[in-house]
């Protein structure tokens, strides 16, 4: 494969899925994934496999930004190049843990939807707004709570791995926050590009996420639709990633104030 094209979903153009090992089965909806939602051995293997392949997609997204925006400021390209390495290390660490638990790559279906959406956007502020400021920040929220659950279940090795990964993700979210502000200061149109990118992400999600009223996934687990899920908010890491107090309060408000971490951190 030398170039990656586009495909149409409804009225949206998304980026084709990157090249994948033959062992992987790529799916597009949450309902097709094998999320177990508990802490059993197979559930933990699936969770690690899912994170590993999401990190692989993150390597690819950072790499694509380096390749496709040669005129970006050099310091921003450096951040993206560093991110490509960080995400590559995350893949290695999770692959190691997966094998320790008796798993193997290709054991479960995977998604590349984050790539399909992010890399369909034709500008760099839009891409880092989606990948870093939204998706990685969201993963930061989830990983904080997940690592606590893993510790409660006695799996400290996986919890330690996720904690270490989350530390790197804070920097990826932080540099996107810094660069979006910096780019917007010199060109206010950047804010419009960011807003349009987030709107694009929301539209794309609505095509692939669990439908209203919930769905049963491929292994028979009932999945709640997004409006019935209470999202976690990792306030401490969001502060480290330089979200403002106003931004964090807005996220908490949207999450119904129910957070897995202390809300005192916003004061």
């Amino acid at each position: 494969m030398s170039e990656i094209g586009y495909f149409k979903v409804g009225n949206m153009m998304l980026r084709e899925t990157p090249a994948r090992d033959a062992c992987f089965k790529v799916v597009y909806t949450d309902a097709e994934m094998h999320e177990f939602g508990d802490m059993s051995e197979i559930a933990r293997r699936e969770m690690i496999h899912r994170h590993m392949t999401n990190e692989m997609t993150s390597v690819e997204m950072a790499a694509a930004c380096v390749a496709e925006f040669p005129d970006a400021p050099w310091e921003l390209r450096m951040e993206l190049a560093r991110q490509a390495w960080d995400e590559a290390r995350h893949v290695r660490a999770l692959h190691r843990r997966l094998r320790e638990l008796g798993g193997h790559k290709g054991e479960f279906p995977i998604s590349a939807l984050e790539w399909n959406v992010t890399c369909a956007v034709d500008n760099l502020p839009g891409r880092i707004a989606i990948q870093n400021r939204t998706l990685e920040a969201g993963a930061m929220d989830v990983m904080g709570g997940l690592s606590q659950s893993l510790r409660s279940a006695g799996d400290h090795e996986t919890a330690d791995t996720l904690d270490s990964i989350n530390t790197d993700e804070v920097q990826h979210v932080r540099f996107s926050n810094r660069w979006i502000k910096r780019l917007a200061e010199s060109d206010r149109r950047v804010l419009m590009k960011v807003a349009m990118a987030i709107r694009f992400l929301t539209q794309a999600n609505s095509n692939f996420q669990i439908k209203e009223g919930g769905e049963t996934n491929a292994i028979g687990k009932e999945l709640a639709s997004p409006e019935n899920r209470i999202p976690a908010v990792n306030v401490e890491d969001r502060k480290l990633a330089e979200f403002t107090d106003d931004e964090i309060n807005e996220i908490l408000r949207q999450a119904g104030y129910r957070s897995l971490v202390s809300t005192e951190a916003t004061r």
Partner: peptide, 11 residues
């Protein structure tokens, strides 16, 4: 990176 299939090569 995205156009090479093998995960190990991407890494």
């Amino acid at each position: 990176t995205p156009t090479t299939p093998e995960m190990e090569a991407k890494v």
